[in-house]
Design a binder for these strands. Structure first.
Lengths: 113, 113
DNA sequence: ACATTTGGTAAGCATTAACTTACCGTAAGC
DNA sequence: GCTTACGGTAAGTTAATGCTTACCAAATGT
């Protein structure tokens, strides 16, 4: 899956709010939209984007449509993240050790101005 | 910190390309920009955004400025991700088990409650 | 001293994208 | 049947954003 779409989908605060409302379990669109600062169609559009990103899936329940979190999108991000994690952490460690953090560590005065 | 900024920063493909070029280690701006389809100032702007998101850090090296991956931004995303992962996975499992995949399995006539 | 390299920022432009209201189809309730 | 609840899509508006060129400051090399 394309982690690109997933990142793009989660970049927007409103869309992330929609997504996070599904954490507790499947929910209908009206239920998601209730109490949100944006209109119901806006929520529908966000859900569409999330679905295309593989972040949510949905199922019909009578006249209602229940959306729920699909792990596939999150998995894509997770894979991308893991690819960086170890390497980035090690490189950063090397970085702060060889160049003693000028602004956060002790103000070394080896180079006086 | 704010995973929001991190997601927003990584949403853009060009900016992600800049970030991914730092995977191998610290690099100067010109070096990052070389071979990219966008101009050098654009890269600078992307680096600024990545820095504000806590995804990269930088240090002066003479007239050059070396950028490198800062794990803090990635850590923020990782924490957010972990918060969803187990719960989303379990919920999804429950979902596909109780509603035998309508489009992939056999179209069950009526779900027995 | 002068020219070169590096890179950050400003201004302007063009595209994207998030939101609104309006509309339409479908399923459930009377 | 008719009416109500649900939700997807269209059209249009406005704000955000990614890119460019131009400019400027600081460090390096000759």
């Amino acid at each position: 899956m394309s982690y690109g779409r997933a990142f793009a989908a989660l970049a927007d605060p409103s869309r992330r709010a929609v997504f996070e409302r599904l954490k507790s379990g499947p929910r209908a669109v009206v239920d998601i939209a209730r109490g949100m600062p944006v209109s119901r169609p806006a929520v529908s559009q966000h859900l569409k984007a999330l679905k295309e990103a593989g972040l949510v899936s949905d199922r019909a329940e009578g006249a209602r449509r229940l959306y729920f979190i699909d792990p596939h999108g999150l998995a894509a991000i997770r894979r991308w993240l893991d690819e960086f994690w170890d390497e980035a952490l090690a490189a950063y460690q090397r970085e702060v050790e060889s160049h003693r953090k000028p602004e956060e560590g002790k103000p070394e005065r080896k180079a006086a101005k």
